[in-house]
Write a protein that binds this DNA or RNA. Sequence first.
DNA 1: GTCTATAGTTTGATAGAC
DNA 2: GTCTATCAAACTATAGAC
Lengths: 186, 186
Amino acid sequence: MDTRTELLKCAENVARRRGYDGFSYADLAKEVGIRKASIHYHFPAKADLAVAMIERYASSFSDALAVIDETSDIASDRLEAYVQSYRKALSGGAKLCLCVAFSVSRDSLSKEALQELDDFHSMSHEWLMNTFQLAKKDNSVSNVGDPKDEAAALLAMVEGAQLVARAACKVADYDRATRLFLKRLA
Amino acid sequence: MDTRTELLKCAENVARRRGYDGFSYADLAKEVGIRKASIHYHFPAKADLAVAMIERYASSFSDALAVIDETSDIASDRLEAYVQSYRKALSGGAKLCLCVAFSVSRDSLSKEALQELDDFHSMSHEWLMNTFQLAKKDNSVSNVGDPKDEAAALLAMVEGAQLVARAACKVADYDRATRLFLKRLA
DNA sequence: GTCTATAGTTTGATAGAC
DNA sequence: GTCTATCAAACTATAGAC
């Protein structure tokens, strides 16, 4: 793997544990095994790194959603996989979704990074909306309301469930918070 | 107001905007109007400040829940007030619940602070559980599941809704995420 | 209780050799 | 591309005068 990618991977890893203001170039240098001055060759400023991190995260997230869509045509299957993916991202209570971690540090981010953050949420929201729209047709989810509202509610729920589970370092808290929603799935 | 309280108020304010790793003694000194060295008289280390912040936050939150209980005996009224209180805490998309902000910076907190964080979540969860238990009796909420699961789901939802709204600085996002739940209230 | 002064560390970032 | 060397600024924290 090239150094740039290795840096991005490492940065994502630590940012999802500690937030944007909670990691430094020194942390990355130590982990990747180069000097911190060398990092500036790949990312001149931390703001550049932040943008690249969100871009990479959104891209891989988008890929994951595409895989979910390919795996099943049933809305309930897709939503279950979605909830499961946020559970997996928790890493046993040690990590958060990158965008959850970055949302808290909003004031430290550049305009460009905030735009990327916004794009990520838009993409997630749209995928969820379409999936709830499908659920209305295939009847695989009980009691479906306005897809726009359902999408916003589920996005908030998985992000909040991650947060609560992270606070206590207990995946069980994530499971408890999402249980009633999963019961609505066929 | 005494300086200690003023410092706590100010620290809460900035921590809810920027997270635990996002503010410094210099920020507080500037805002409160004393030198940063003076802050150490009240809070020897930042870890001490963190503990006092959560204590104060949990205490005022607990008071707010007591007021809600006094205002109405109907479960749906109480839950609506609960959701509303998280909305108000958003401050137009500028702030988060202190415990949401601190959960992200978990690794920077002392054991004592983490314990306080845990206590806060326990208190919230218990109040919600009792309220959903009441809802089962007074039928003011539609389709109530296991109170324990309902409590966890709602806590996750309001915290997640705050986060999404904070990311975009749009209170409307909070409203959209909580709309379907509020529809279940009588 | 608040101040000045300062220590010791860490931060993000740059210059220039290799 | 990575290094050494260095910078100025910010950080938490302490000592001691008032």
